[in-house]
Computed example of a mutant assay.
Amino acid sequence: MPDDPAGGGPHSRAPQAKRATASVSASCLSRRTRIARRSGDGPRSTGELAGMFELGRPAVSEHLAVLRTAGLVREEPRGRHRFYHLEPARLTEVSEWLHPFERYWKQRLEALPDLLDEENGT
């Protein structure tokens, strides 16, 4: 597979790829995905999120730190509390970055029946 299925050299989209890779990495864990999703329902505090997932606040704080670093959530301080919001723009960026790969695998899967027929001699 080429370095960049969208065209260009392996480094032509390096900054975007780096950010998108961080975003994908952060969202890989099921808990982080669910935490990010709940943050999309409206601003949520660490304590509120901890209660939703039966996790301790320190564990939720670690997940939120990864999500913040990836740009998937933003933090809003309110007095002594911090509230977290989903950043949908980052998800759009990840989707755009993944699109060439989606096209690549879709083409490969569409060609699979022909390949299997060829393998089976039919």
Rank of each mutant, 00 (worst) to 15 (best):
M1N: 04
P2E: 09
D4G: 01
P5L: 07
G7K: 08
P10F: 06
P10D: 12
H11E: 15
H11C: 12
R13Q: 14
R13F: 00
A14F: 01
Q16C: 01
Q16N: 07
R19H: 08
R19L: 11
T21D: 11
A22F: 02
S23W: 04
V24G: 10
S25I: 06
S25E: 13
S27D: 04
C28S: 14
L29E: 12
S30F: 12
R31W: 12
R31N: 10
R31Y: 13
R32C: 10
T33K: 14
S39F: 02
G40C: 08
D41Q: 15
R44N: 06
R44D: 00
S45A: 15
G47H: 05
E48N: 10
L49S: 08
G51P: 05
M52C: 10
F53A: 04
E54C: 08
E54P: 01
E54W: 01
L55R: 15
L55F: 07
G56R: 13
G56C: 01
A59T: 15
A59P: 06
V60R: 07
E62L: 10
E62Q: 14
L64Q: 07
L64Y: 08
L67D: 03
L72K: 02
L72E: 03
R74V: 03
E76I: 13
E76W: 10
P77D: 00
R80M: 03
H81F: 04
H81E: 15
F83N: 04
H85L: 11
H85T: 03
E87M: 09
P88R: 07
P88W: 09
R90Q: 15
R90D: 02
R90I: 01
L91R: 07
L91V: 04
L91P: 05
E96A: 11
L98Q: 12
H99D: 15
P100I: 02
F101Y: 14
R103M: 06
Y104G: 01
Y104I: 01
Y104P: 02
W105T: 15
K106C: 07
Q107H: 10
Q107M: 08
Q107W: 00
R108P: 02
L109Q: 14
A111V: 05
L112S: 04
P113S: 06
P113N: 04
D114R: 11
L115W: 07
L116G: 02
L116C: 06
D117G: 12
D117L: 12
E119F: 09
N120K: 11
N120R: 15
G121H: 05
T122D: 14
T122Q: 13
